[in-house]
Amino acid sequence: MHGVGIIKGMIETARNFAGSYTDPERLITVQYPEEKLPPVENARTIPFLVYDGVDAMAGLRCTACMICEKECPPQCIYIVKDQVKKPDFVGKLQVQPKVFDIDISVCMSCGICVEVCPFDAIKMDQVFELSTNDRFGGLLVDKTQLAKPNEYFVKLHKTEASEIDARREEEKQKAEAAAAAKAAAPKPTPAPAPAKPPAQAPAAATPPTPQTPAQPTAAPAPAK
């Protein structure tokens, strides 16, 4: 009979229509903004800068190494180094950024800045409700707007954050132990009289501490 195919198709449509009242598989509309879908762990929208502690500017992990600015494909990051250095989590004086702007109208959420950062300072955020009325300045976020605490990062990516925290804690303890050992060591003996053979000199010159502190500037591998 001509038209059987159409009727079979309509039976399918009717099945879907009736099923949408009972089967959650068939009715998939989410009434946004009253209902929101749960966030997915790895989702990425725009980057944010991580800071430790309470003070955003003092605890910023970023050392203005300019690697993310160089590697960013659409060149949307703009960094200016500060002349004033600040101590980082180990206690060493580090360069910090004076200006760190990201133009989020240009940012394409690729995450390359996160992949190449050697200091775990920049991570991908999941906020997407970013609309603003100002087309030019409103979409240019600066250092203060980008800085978010480490607790926020832990909430987003629990496993990765705990790995990074464990590693930083370890480095901090090593640095503290090295500093303590250095302070407690006896002063090196003055160089012996020049008549003595020079083989003695290297032994007096080497510092008594057996371990050298692991400098955090030697880029630790990105947590992946």
């Binding site: 001509h2 038209g3 059987v4 195919g5 159409i6 079979k8 198709g9 039976i11 399918e12 449509t13």
Partner: peptide
Amino acid sequence: EEFEALLTGNEILL
């Protein structure tokens, strides 16, 4: 299967 039941025998499509 649902797609094919919906469409592949459909005279208009053919």
